[in-house]
């Protein structure tokens, strides 16, 4: 049995867990913990990933794709390099409606680029939000090179997640040529 790994990364509350949940054939194995009520994070969401999220897509009897979601908070970043080991490619999720997270998203992108010269795409998530920045503005804001794919995304919609995964796979294929 061959297993292939892709990593979904991005800042806190950018939609990584939602992304994996939308496409995984199994219930996502999540290491989410309740956030303490009086913390700032609690205003954003009730639970956060502390080690990783894990989803699976079976291709056939011999091939399985694993999706690993990284914890978004910096205090769990010791997990990032472990999760990045041997990845086929990675997706950086960005919450398009929260410019305060763009700098962090860029920093995470650079960190993962430094781990390995693996293909990646950037997903401009929450494009259904009224305050969402346009993907092309995000490209400039995050200083993403023109040759890197920056894709509109709504992580709670399966079709949108599928399109992002496909674009990453096409990128991987192009880099193999």
């Amino acid at each position: 049995m061959q297993t292939v790994k892709m990593v979904i990364t991005g800042p806190f509350s950018s939609g990584k867990t939602e992304f994996i949940k939308s496409i995984s054939e199994i219930d996502v194995v999540s290491t989410e913990r309740d956030i303490k009520e009086d913390t700032a994070e609690a205003q954003e969401k009730e639970q956060t990933t502390v080690a990783m999220d894990f989803g699976r897509i079976t291709v056939d009897d011999d091939l399985v794709l694993y999706l690993f979601g990284t914890p978004g908070q910096r205090r769990f970043d010791f997990m990032w390099e472990i999760l990045a080991e041997g990845m086929l490619g990675f997706i950086v999720m960005v919450d398009s409606a929260k410019p305060e997270t763009f700098r962090e998203a860029k920093s995470i992108l650079e960190t993962f680029r430094a781990y390995a010269p693996t293909p990646y795409v950037v997903a401009a998530n929450k494009q259904d939000h009224p305050d969402a920045w346009d993907p092309e503005d995000l490209r400039i804001a995050l200083r993403i090179e023109p040759e890197v794919k920056l894709l509109p995304c709504v992580a709670k919609e399966r079709d949108s997640v599928r399109d992002v995964l496909l674009e990453l796979l096409y990128t991987i294929l192009e880099e193999m040529d």
Binding site: V4, T58, V59, D60, L63, L65, L169, L173
Partner: peptide, 10 residues
């Protein structure tokens, strides 16, 4: 392998 993955995701 990548082509198989693409077909499956599609």
């Amino acid at each position: 392998v990548v082509t198989k993955l693409i077909d499956r995701i599609k």
